[in-house]
Design a protein around this nucleic acid. Structure first.
Length: 305
DNA sequence: CGTTCAACCTGGGCGC
DNA sequence: TGCGCCCAGGTTGAAC
């Protein structure tokens, strides 16, 4: 589920936790798959109970809660939560009592409306919870693992990291080492607004098109953050205080197979790339050098010799 | 290097 | 109602 705009919205909803102290940590009904929680729940609890939340940051699609060094002189640690498909980071009541994976009880504060706890709820349970020290955080969420953040990505970033690739551009945009934060929804929406066919091999994309993709990506992701992300179904992504996002109303292609393109009326097509659905408008989105049909406010053009 | 497939999971929707 | 199948916002590792 959550891509950059959704995770960023969650993060903003958790900023009020900064300065709060962790009273207790619980992993209810934890069927701890070895790969989903690390280290073991008891070890995590022992290491963060009593600490103060120093910051809540985002690294790509991950939420990272920084816990200040302890009074005993232990260095800071970072709790990295990756919601994957169905994870929700909440300060409100979770959708169900089932599927609550982690509860962090906070030391009460007199401030009005202050949260009492943080809850990570994850229906499918594909999400991960990991506690890192500084070195581990860098290894797992650093530059080697994640490319530049989608909100700040530039044409230079894209051209240098993907320009030599023969992969289709839509598949390439999902590569978190190239750009961090773009997922299946926003890859489709970005390419529609940039008028690029998602199957176009990166090597065939010229400089002006990379500029368009980067400009659209930054603007679209920022717009989606302003609308607090995309909530598709009823039991889907919510903000930290349990409200739906609103950006789904502005989707132009994602999930709209067979429906008319909002720009030209042509039926939106669904294909599969790298085992994942891709939605696009076959009229508005062309491979470089191919004619673009009327209807998108773009003049036709032909391949240069 | 790139692609494909399977896995990890739960649950909604659809056809029969 | 029930069953079987397909689908889903993500990531990883193995096989080719």
């Amino acid at each position: 589920m959550p891509e950059l705009p959704e995770v960023e919205t969650m993060r903003r909803g958790l900023e009020g936790l900064v300065g709060r102290r962790v009273a207790a940590v619980a992993f209810p009904r934890s069927r701890v798959r070895p790969s989903s929680v690390e280290p073991r729940p008891l070890a995590i609890a022992r290491r963060i109970e009593g600490r103060t939340i120093a910051a809540v940051v985002r690294r790509g699609k991950r939420l990272v809660i920084e816990l200040a060094g302890s009074t005993r002189g232990e260095p800071p640690v970072w709790l990295a939560i990756e919601p994957r498909m169905t994870g929700l980071a909440l300060v409100a009541d979770p959708p169900t009592r089932e599927h609550v994976r982690l509860v962090i009880e906070l030391v009460p504060t007199p401030a009005r409306g202050a949260a009492t706890r943080f809850v990570f709820w994850d229906r499918r349970g594909l999400g991960t919870i990991r506690l890192f020290d500084a070195m581990e955080l860098e290894a797992a969420c650093g530059m080697a693992k994640l490319g530049p953040d989608g909100l700040g990505v530039t044409a230079d970033d894209l051209a240098s990291r993907l320009g030599g690739s023969r992969r289709g551009v839509k598949v390439a945009l999902l590569d978190q080492r190239a750009v961090a934060g773009i997922g299946n929804i926003y890859a489709a929406e970005i390419l529609h607004r940039a008028r690029i066919d998602p199957r176009t091999p990166c090597v065939r994309i010229r400089r002006d098109a990379w500029e368009r993709i980067a400009d659209v990506a930054r603007a679209l992701l920022a717009e989606a953050v302003r609308h607090e992300g995309s909530s598709l179904g009823d039991d889907t992504y919510r903000t930290a205080d349990n409200r739906f996002g609103r950006f789904q109303r502005r989707h132009r292609v994602y999930g709209r197979a067979g429906e008319p393109c909002k720009a030209c009326g042509t039926a939106i097509v669904r294909i599969v790339q790298a085992q994942r659905a891709t939605f696009f408008c076959p009229s508005c989105q062309r491979r470089p050098g191919r004619a673009i049909t009327a209807g998108c406010g773009v003049a036709s053009r032909t391949r240069l010799p």
